[in-house]
């Protein structure tokens, strides 16, 4: 049965279903038994599955991340959660040097079936150490997959898919999406990793975005339609592997690529997509690529600075209009 539920409830439902159906599944991380845990996303899990499988941890990100990797090597299917993406730097060694390399480095003998669920929680004057969006950093590392659901439907389906994948998957959600509602089937289902989705069909511009920025991209596309600009919005859903087939098909059709990403601009997701267009669709491009992303500065606190720092739908629409205006005839 399909009904409307929020993004956060979709995550909570997937966690319940995973722990229910897979005795090897564990939920590990800081605060997972707390009743006010990030958006109530872990509500009811400790009561139902107990402290053996819902494991609240001390603030020891390096060790606890490693313990999740070790448990995976010993046959478990852990879901490890970081309530803020910023806290992951402490755990980078276990992710990049260990989890990511293990399957390749030991000749494909042992995989690391691990979901690293991590939350972007920006805004609210939280500043540089509580706001980061690090999708590009993890996508850069061979051996890690990266997904970024933008809707409640994808949040549930990608969590199930990540759990079933058998590789280390970085599952990135955004706190700003938690109260958004969507049609979500009650039963378990998967959204395939590596497949994007066309959210709006269009013919003038391909606008590729992810997570919260995909929602803003849809709003921008609707506004631009009023001005007679037809924008095709692709929600990437997976950062790695990228749905190159879908992207290239659209770019070849429209001849114009805009990327809206919630991470930093330099060396980021937007740079990778621009490179893809340059390498694989150069002769189809009618204009230079436009990138809308965070400026190369740490996140500021003050609300006025935040407003400038984070692009919204208006910014996406106005930048696209200005860019189209500049385009050589």
């Amino acid at each position: 049965m399909t009904r409307k539920i929020t993004y956060v409830r979709a995550i909570n439902e997937a966690l319940h279903q995973i722990l229910e159906s897979d005795p090897k599944a564990l939920l590990i991380g800081q605060g997972v038994t707390s009743p006010w845990y990030v958006g109530a996303s872990t509500l009811g899990l400790i009561q139902k599955f107990g402290p053996e499988r819902v494991i609240d941890t001390p603030v020891s990100e390096n060790c606890t991340m490693g313990a999740a990797v070790g448990a995976a090597l010993a046959g478990m299917h852990p879901i490890f959660v970081f309530p803020r993406m910023d806290f992951m730097y402490y755990a980078l060694d276990q992710l990049a040097n260990h989890a990511a390399n293990w399957h390749y480095m030991f000749g494909r003998q042992l995989g690391v079936p691990l979901v690293v669920w991590t939350i972007i929680n920006r805004g609210g004057e939280q500043a540089a150490q509580h706001s980061q969006a690090l999708q590009a950093l993890f996508a850069h590392i061979p051996g890690l997959k990266v997904v970024m659901p933008g809707t409640a439907y994808d949040a549930k389906g990608l969590l199930h898919a990540s759990h079933q994948d058998g590789n280390p998957v970085i599952y990135i959600d955004e706190r700003w999406l938690y109260q958004n509602e969507d049609d979500v089937p009650e039963e378990p289902y998967t959204v395939p990793i590596g497949k994007g989705v066309v959210r709006e069909k269009g013919s003038d511009v391909t606008l590729a975005a992810n997570s919260y920025m995909a929602l803003k991209a849809i709003e921008a596309a609707k506004a631009l339609a009023q001005d007679g600009i037809s924008v095709e919005v692709i929600d990437l859903r997976s950062i790695k592997p990228l749905d190159e087939t879908m992207l290239l098909k659209s770019i070849k059709k429209t001849g114009r690529l805009v990327i809206a990403d919630g991470g930093w601009k330099s060396f980021g997701v937007s740079a990778e997509l621009a490179a893809l267009a340059a390498e694989e669709a150069f002769n189809h491009l009618k204009a230079p690529v436009l990138r809308i992303a965070l400026p190369d500065t740490p996140a500021p606190a003050s609300r006025t600075l935040e407003k400038t720092y984070y692009p919204d739908a208006n910014r996406i629409a106005s930048e696209i209009k200005a860019w189209l205006h500049k385009e050589p005839k």
Binding site: I55, N62, C63, T64, M65, G66, A67, A68, V69, G70, A71, A72, L73, A74, G75, M76, D93, Q94, N97, H98, W102, M105, F106, L110
Partner: peptide, 19 residues
Amino acid sequence: GSSAIVAGTIPLAVGAALA
């Protein structure tokens, strides 16, 4: 597996013990 990162496998052993 063995790791060339000093102390890198210590938490892995803790995790296997957890399993």
